[in-house]
Design a protein around this nucleic acid. Structure first.
Lengths: 226, 226
DNA sequence: TCAAAAGTGTTAAGTTTACACCCATGA
DNA sequence: TCATGGGTGTAAACTTAACACTTTTGA
């Protein structure tokens, strides 16, 4: 081993930035933070953190997510590395963006507020620090490309959900209306989206059947098309 | 500006690794290098390089590509950041992988050999350093997802090409056979894939019509479906 | 004259889209 | 009783997939 060849090269701060998506009342949300340190203290930004010396970058993303939400073992997908020289005006930082999909009800609201973090509507994002808006757009693009093939969107919903909720979620992510009958037809072809005998009466007088995503059934026939 | 908050955090070597795809005689190839420095000198690896202090990571990828091929201004797509603690056994290095598609005829073979780099068949890759095989697999996956929607595959071919060559290219990238008539029907719907009046007689006695990708026509109607 | 690659259309199957009314219930 | 959201099926348009023979020409 000769690390001396490496040592002639410069080193960089490496950070992770987390795009944490949630879904509430028909709207796709992102968890944004009022930056708690200089430079740019108080401006809206993604929640980020520097990678530690003995930490995988994927683990750093999990750690940051956990700090902000209290959640563990959440599926996170890397969006990519952002490494322009002047992207961070404080100092050079190369940042790797990750996104996660979480159920807002399960996140620890006190942790959020302790970090000055709030759920903001994707349709009216405030101005954001550095290239954070670009990171969010890339994450959304990746998410859109994925939701049709992988059952990840369920992470955004409660365990039990109505088909109207599920449809609104897809509409919010894709940014377009979906035909109700076509959507429900496709859902009914997926046996791992199970109807329960419970009913939600919060949004209608008649009540809507509650459904559940069954992981075991999905593992037996992991074919997902929405 | 207060960079002092940042300075408490560790710094890392950041590298770029380039997956350079080529296409020759019906086979998808990658440019691999016998590593010219320790540790692991002489083992097969991707061509990489450390990011410089005042260099965007995208530019670092272009620089490395240029060093190895002599080519400029080649479209490169980021594959992602690879940042496990122990991925590089020499020292911790966080690496960002990029892929490029090049026409083998246009790369400078002397530069290749000066860098101990050779075109290796994607179907029989040698054992590779670190996580480089994983990088190649991710790059191929991304490439497969892209070639149906973007006319990037033409980068791999000479300016003039036959439809058989184009089809073999798609088959090599996708790893599956394509029906000739269906393929040619789809090609004929894309007016920016133009038939020239030139003929290639290298692979058949009858001769095959040579085609060209017309950028201007594509820009007018940038709808690509293969 | 024949081997080898180029070139050429049609049909069936499957997928996607468009579309409108009745149901159950609480206020 | 009526306003509100829940629930349901069919037909046309479009896309994809399967399939086999003729042409040209140099050796």
């Amino acid at each position: 081993m000769s690390p001396s060849y490496y040592s002639q090269f410069p080193k960089f701060h490496v950070a992770v930035d987390c795009i944490i998506f949630g879904f509430e009342q028909g709207h796709l949300k992102v968890l944004l933070q009022k930056r708690p340190f200089e430079p740019h203290r108080g401006e809206w930004s993604l929640m980020g953190g520097f990678v530690k010396a003995d930490e995988d970058i994927d683990d750093a993303a999990q750690r940051v997510l956990n700090q902000l939400t209290g959640l563990h073992d959440i599926y996170m997908k890397q969006v990519g590395a952002f490494g322009n020289v002047s992207r961070d005006t404080g100092n050079r930082v190369i940042s790797v963006a990750y996104f996660a999909l979480v159920n807002i009800e399960r996140v620890n609201a006190e942790l959020n507020h302790g970090n000055s973090a709030y759920w903001e509507d994707m349709e009216k994002l405030p101005p954001l620090l550095f290239d954070h808006k670009e990171m969010i757009q890339s994450a959304l693009k990746k998410l859109r490309a994925m939701i049709g093939h992988m059952p990840i969107s369920f992470q955004l919903l409660p365990k039990l959900f109505t088909l109207t909720q599920l449809q609104m979620l897809y509409e919010a992510i894709l940014g377009q209306k979906i035909d109700k009958r076509n959507f429900r037809k496709r859902v009914s072809e997926m046996t791992f989206i199970e109807k329960t005998n419970q009913v939600d009466k919060l949004t209608s007088k008649r009540g809507a059947a509650l459904y559940r995503f069954n992981v075991e059934t999905f593992n037996q026939e992991p074919i997902f098309k929405l």
